[in-house]
């Protein structure tokens, strides 16, 4: 049972990490980085570290995404492109 939880969360985490590296749109990259942090916090719970999981979910998936979103908006990469813009 624990093996399956760990296996699924590791697979989700690695797929999201590859998506962070190779997606073009920075909106999607920020969402994928948030998914990495959430899968990592599930993994921390499975490894008997609930306090670390709490901090990772709050800080890694919450504050980090907000910081990235604000930076991308300042830099001008945070745009919701439609088809006609491309």
């Amino acid at each position: 049972m624990l093996v399956w939880v760990v296996l699924i969360s590791v697979v989700v985490m690695l797929v999201a990490a590859v998506a962070v590296l190779f997606l073009k749109d920075f909106l999607a990259v920020t969402a994928a980085a948030s998914v990495v942090s959430l899968a990592l916090s599930v993994l921390f719970v499975a490894l008997q570290a609930p306090d670390v999981a709490l901090a990772e979910a709050a800080v890694g998936a919450g504050v980090s995404s907000v910081i990235f979103a604000l930076t991308l908006r300042r830099v001008g990469l945070w745009k919701l492109e439609t088809k006609k813009d491309k």
């Binding site: 590296l21 990495v36 990592l40 008997q48 930076t71 990469l77």
Partner: peptide, 29 residues
């Protein structure tokens, strides 16, 4: 910004590595 995302993944990996070092099978929190 992609370099900073890489730094973020690196930090997450190191944190997971340290937690895994401290893990013992069948132990509680």
């Amino acid at each position: 910004i992609r370099i900073i995302f890489g730094l973020m993944l690196l930090e997450a990996g190191v944190n997971l590595f340290l937690i895994t070092i401290g893990y013992r099978g069948g132990a509680v929190a």
